[in-house]
Design a binder for these strands. Structure first.
Length: 834
RNA sequence: GCCCGGGUGGCGGAAUGGCAGACGCUGAGGACUUAAAAUCCUCCGGGGAUUUUUCCUCAUGUGGGUUCGACUCCCACCCCGGGCACCA
């Protein structure tokens, strides 16, 4: 008998699929579409088993849906712009394009080796001009709508690289990742932004549309990221400097304003310099200020930093109480959030408490809990910040109100009296997209001495990357030092002008790529809206939890912008999201830098693609992390061999048998029992695939069925070829989404000339699946004391009667009275005795 | 600190209020073989009793609770993993 040879089987069927164009799909209004998508990879290094698992999950879904009659679109592409390509190019003195394309070729070779059912005609690569020109086109639309703008902002700047660093590139508490001896500076430079904040409310509200389809935690993370706060802005007049505008503070707890004992400004608040001018503490203040301003913008540093600040020597007036409050500067107040100024209420806010305690500022209680001891500002050890309870005290006319009532009333009063305004603010910031890099989409803008900022006209798109940049990693950005790129003519006046030399953040590339798959070769538009109407939204998106915020939020933002310029009709691009677990080795995620990767191609060479696929699906449920185990993969390999031998042994007899028909009434007990197991397995596997995505238990069920068939050997003694055919065909079809090559081969061995790819998912036969007899446990007071074989559908009284006579149960009933009986038909009997 | 996950044999995991440990791995024993590999068969949570057969008992992070019945639901706590974080 032939041995299972995955190498030749897999090559054979991949060729057949390709020749028959099995996975190429076009819009067909007569069929229900299904869009399944795995997050596109960044082609770097080798494709490892961590990537592979992601695609294996998507491929099972694609193949199951295809067998179920859906018109499935399942595309693949490359997130091809990015810094690693540029760094590799600098290091190896090559071009980023060469490095990237070599990786793409390698990735594609590996994906093809695994037989994933992609429609390769739809392949895209984001670094190609035919793709990135549409990034530029979208940018120009946003510029027209005021959604793209330039602004100075604080960034991490490495003076040696002469470029902006992402927060992730600042290491060891403030050093450049490439120049580990160089301290990163905080600089303010002009950058391009996209106005994501214009959609704050929609991005938040539309999360409701995603409930049920997206994991709750992803929705929660997005909600927190957007960070909506309802509160009020209150103006505090500066008492001791004439002609200075009042300072505005944002608060969600205006009810505690009578407890405000200081006003605290962010170090870079525009008022600080003016307050210090002529102040008695000016020189000390400026010294501390310089120190505070230098502190890093990195999240971790901010979190661990101690609260620090200084008194400006100036005072403000509390508009409600008329009281005098000292104005301080504090490092924990952020210019980027709210108004950059807060009122410090130490009695009712933990951060304010810590700050005021440290600097000896008074603590004044204005909300007392309704139960428990009254709080005293002089003795309290922590802030009382619960706003759901308590009553106002020491708050003039508002005494006795609940915080909730006070927030409403005081907000309204502040508005009436003109020193405040109720407002909702968001944590979400606009999206800074400028990068001082080469390997990205050039921003299509020209600066002219006469006409100022001039957008590149649509007809001049794409603005191509210059082919031969000087990539050194030092000095100014590569595009800025490529003069043939920089120097151009103004589209308006024709005079000499300069091009923008920043490129776009690569998150832009991945914000809309899934639309391009629907119309990948369109040269006059990013896509034809009509095609989107058919294929969108994405029915199932699959990827890592790492992208829970940025990629998915930007994609949602992009969708809304496209909707508002009339390109698409839906609010949300992705209906369902699945976040799969990582593949770990030695307890950490596989990554090239950790040196713990298992290459997918080598894996396929060793065991075959089907074994690799089966293993990653079997070893853990798809949402959980999976620890790589070489022993377990051999188990998957053994199982596939077992199946292959089984079908091989019987294929000749089956092929000779008349096609499939037998009289159900003529089945013998062994045939019935085998068919029952097969159809029961199918019933459960179908539900595992469709409703639960429990691929691991689906595989376990198919293994059980295989064991059962082996247990019934030799089949030729009692099982007719027609029945054998039915059982082995079901087995083959159930495996098909997971091990498609092997299944095709078995299908052919079973005598089918047409490929398995033409087969539908089978339907189980309930008559065969039904049990005649079941074994149920019998419990006495909830403890299992025996088991009974009963006919399916037996009546309670009959079962109780049998139970009472049973030799293992009767002793437990001896001399006792049955006070209650619980009978779950065909499941269990529980007798409660006293 | 806040928000999510999660905690079941030697290991990965199964069990959607109803027989805890399916399925696989590892390990042990056996068959086949000159031998090995492969394959096939048997056993494999702890303790105790009976030592053929079986029975009892403990056990799903800990402690309570609801229930005839809890890995599953509720409350409190412990531990592990992840995310966010001076967000006013």
């Amino acid at each position: 008998m032939a041995e299972y040879n995955p190498q030749s089987i897999e090559a054979k069927w991949q060729k057949r699929w390709e020749d028959a164009r099995v996975f190429e799909t076009d819009a067909d209004p007569a069929k229900t579409k299904y869009y399944v998508l795995e997050m596109l990879p960044y082609p770097s290094g080798t494709l490892h088993m961590g990537h592979m698992r992601n695609y294996a999950i998507g491929d099972v879904v694609a193949r199951v849906k295809r067998m179920r009659g859906f018109n499935v679109i399942h595309p693949m592409g490359w997130d091809a712009f990015g810094l690693p390509a540029e760094n590799a190019a600098i290091k190896n003195k090559t071009h980023p394009r060469d490095w990237t394309n070599a990786n793409i070729a390698e990735f594609q070779r590996t994906l093809r080796r695994f037989g994933f059912s992609y429609d390769w005609r739809r392949e895209i690569s984001t670094c190609e001009p035919e793709y990135y020109r549409w990034n530029q086109w979208f940018f120009l639309r946003m510029l027209e709508k005021g959604l793209a703008y330039r602004k100075k902002s604080r960034v991490n700047w490495c003076p040696k690289c002469c470029t902006v660093l992402a927060n992730e590139q600042v290491i060891n508490g403030g050093y450049c990742w490439r120049h580990e001896d160089t301290l990163v500076e905080v600089r303010e430079i002009e950058q391009w932004f996209l106005k994501t904040t214009a959609y704050s409310d929609q991005l938040l509200d539309d999360l409701k549309q995603l409930e049920g389809g997206w994991p709750d935690r992803v929705i929660t993370m997005q909600r927190n990221w957007i960070g909506k706060s309802q509160g009020a802005k209150v103006k505090f007049a500066v008492a001791d400097v004439h002609g200075l505008d009042p300072i505005e503070a944002f608060t969600t707890r205006i009810d505690t304003i009578y407890g405000a004992t200081a006003l605290i400004l962010a170090p870079n608040h525009p008022h600080v310099a003016k307050l210090l001018e002529g102040s008695p503490v000016r020189s000390e203040g400026e010294e501390v200020l310089a120190k505070l301003k230098k502190s890093s913008v990195k999240a971790e540093d901010i979190a661990t930093a101690e609260k620090e600040g200084f008194f400006t020597g100036r005072h403000a007036t509390n508009p409600f109480s008329g009281g005098r409050m000292p104005i301080w500067v504090g490092n924990f107040v952020l210019m980027e959030y709210g108004t950059g100024a807060i009122m410090a209420v130490p009695a009712h806010d933990e951060r304010d408490f810590e700050f005021c305690k440290k600097y000896g500022l008074p603590i004044r209680v204005v909300v007392q809990a309704e139960d428990g001891k009254p709080l005293d500002g002089a003795t309290m050890m922590e802030a009382f910040s619960e706003h759901q309870q308590g009553r106002l005290v020491n708050s003039g006319p508002y005494n006795g109100l609940s915080p909730e009532e006070a927030i409403a009333k005081m907000g309204a009063d502040a508005e009436t009296k003109g020193f405040g305004k109720r407002e909702t603010i968001f944590r979400l910031r606009d999206w800074g997209i400028s990068r001082q890099r080469y390997w990205g989409t050039p921003i299509p803008v020209i600066y002219c001495a006469k006409d100022g900022l001039v957008p590149v006209p649509d007809k001049d798109l794409p603005v191509l990357l210059p082919p031969n940049p000087k990539l050194t990693g030092e000095g100014e950005s590569p595009l800025a030092s490529t003069l043939e790129f920089v120097n151009t003519t103004c589209p308006k006046c024709g005079g000499p002008a300069r091009r923008e030399t920043d490129t776009m953040d690569t998150f832009i590339d991945s914000s809309w790529y899934f639309y391009r798959y629907c119309d990948p070769h369109n040269s006059t538009a990013p896509f034809e809206p009509k095609k989107i109407v058919y294929w969108f939204p994405i029915d199932q998106y699959i990827g890592g939890i790492t992208h829970a915020i940025l990629h998915l939020l930007y994609s949602r933002f992009w969708c809304k912008v496209m909707r508002d310029i009339g390109l698409v009709k839906h609010d949300e691009p992705i209906k369902r999201l699945f976040t799969q677990g990582m593949v770990l080795k030695g307890g950490t995620a596989m990554s090239k830098s950790k040196g713990n990767v298992v290459g997918a191609y080598e894996m396929a060479d060793k065991f075959g693609a089907d074994t690799g696929r089966l293993y990653t699906l079997f070893a853990a449920p798809p949402e959980k992390d999976l620890e790589w185990s070489e022993e377990s993969i051999e188990g998957a390999w053994r199982f596939l061999n077992r199946v292959f031998r089984l079908v091989g042994k019987h294929s000749e007899a089956i092929r000779g048998a008349s096609n499939g028909k037998y009289d159900a009434a003529s089945l013998n007990d062994k045939e019935k029992s085998l068919l029952r197991k097969a159809h029961q397995t199918l019933r459960r596997v179908t539900s595992d695939f469709e409703t639960r995505w429990h691929f691991n238990s689906a595989i376990a069920l198919v293994m059980e069925l295989t064991n059962e068939v082996y247990g019934a050997e030799p089949l030729e003694k009692s099982i007719r070829p027609e029945v054998r055919r039915e059982v082995l065909e079901l087995l083959t079809l159930m495996l098909a989404p997971m091990t498609p090559h092997l299944s095709e081969e078995l299908w052919e061995m079973l005598g089918h000339a047409d490929g398995l790819w033409t087969s539908a998912w089978p339907t189980h036969n309930e008559d065969f699946a039904r049990d005649d007899e079941v074994e149920i446990p019998v419990q006495i007071n909830g403890k299992v004391r025996g088991r009974l074989k009963i006919a399916v559908g037996a009546k309670e009284d009959a079962v109780v009667e049998i139970a009472q006579k049973d030799s293992s149960i009767a002793p437990h009933l001896n001399g006792k009275r049955v006070v209650k009986r619980i009978y779950v038909p065909d499941k269990l009997l529980n007798l409660v005795v006293a």
